[in-house]
Design a protein around this nucleic acid. Structure first.
Lengths: 193, 193
DNA sequence: TCGGAAAACTTGTCAGTGACAAGACTGCGA
DNA sequence: TCGCAGTCTTGTCACTGACAAGTTTTCCGA
């Protein structure tokens, strides 16, 4: 009777149709609102219009869901870094911009206690993001020994990550303003010049 | 009868005697073990040997307890930065060292969703730590305009905070080793030279 | 010294949560 | 067409934070 029902409609079918995707989307929303810690699987289920135990069938448990989210996040980050090109400063600005615009992803990505850090998909996605970051450093004009490149990559990552983290924590003084890209460019340029 | 009882003894008196301090100490331990998110007030109460509702009388709620912990943490950090002296690199190393050695404090200090960021005591302690950090930057040899000092302070804070955060998240590659002070010195020196 | 008020702590309870178990429904492939 | 695996549901358990109300102790002023 409801054979032609393409999934998410008003009249709830027994099978949601695209629950996994719907739960991930709901999780993003919920994390933006209340943070990853206060995230409740039962709330996600309510948002998706399914029973409280449905999420477990797609993700096992809460950590499973957040692991999937973190993997998505690393792929988005890798994409943003590649788009920023080979300019290290621009890559750093893109990193901060990603953190601010995709706060929910970013917060889950760097909290190992929230997800399964050894998950295969997650590890692969993280590696892709790492490669994108290193390629920006390798293209630096000074281009010294590989050991220097490693160190430079860590320094660049640290300063971008630190600024992003402090921004998200609301720990920065007011005078920094409310334009993260601008502020990041100023702070990060101290390293690249 | 137990008038001479000096507080914490085997035979539990109705009044614990030093419950506030005991709870904070237990919280530090618990956070080291399971992280600030999985911290349970009821578990703290059990560790201190009191009833499950006792903590509320000293801290109001969970956020109250973590606020007190964060304030303590900022004071410890300020102390560590002052001890490191006026050398900016050493201050950065001390910052990272503090984060690693007092992980429980550090994690609570920079997660506003865990505490009450506008608490008076906390704000004052945070300000003391900020002053200690800035004094290290002001003493830089180059000593340019005040605006430059502000920017340099932010850059230094960002790179130290970023490295510390990535270290705690276990996000750094293996080759960084397991000596945080050494590794930090190498990465941070990229900024100060 | 004594009595009342405040502080410290208790028991009891409630709604919300994650996880698990067992059962109902559905659609795909043999 | 039929069985079976995947999807979702209902039911339940232990645990948690918060609140309410009562009990015990300390302290301070008359």
């Amino acid at each position: 009777m409801t054979r032609y029902d393409p999934g998410v409609t008003e009249s709830r079918a027994y099978h949601h149709g695209d629950l996994r995707r719907a739960l991930l989307a709901a999780a993003l929303e919920a994390i933006e609102e209340v943070g990853p810690t206060a995230l409740s699987l039962r709330d996600l289920a309510r948002r998706a219009g399914v029973s409280h135990a449905a999420p477990a069938h797609h993700f096992g448990d809460k950590a499973g869901l957040l692991t999937a989210l973190a993997a998505q996040g690393f792929d988005l980050l890798a994409q943003a870094l590649v788009q920023a090109g080979d300019d290290l400063l621009e890559a750093g600005v893109a990193y901060v911009d990603f953190a601010v615009r995709h706060r929910a992803y970013f917060e889950v990505m760097f909290r190992p206690e929230l997800h399964r850090a050894d998950d295969a998909e997650l590890t692969a996605a993280r590696e892709r993001a790492g490669a994108a970051l290193r390629s920006g450093v390798a293209a630096l004009p000074g281009g010294g020994a590989p050991a220097d490149t490693d160190r430079d990559a860590l320094s660049a990552w640290s300063i971008a990550h630190g600024f992003a983290t402090l921004w998200l924590a609301g720990a920065l003084p007011d005078r920094v303003g409310n334009n993260p890209r601008e502020a990041a460019r100023e702070v990060l340029s101290r390293l690249t010049t």
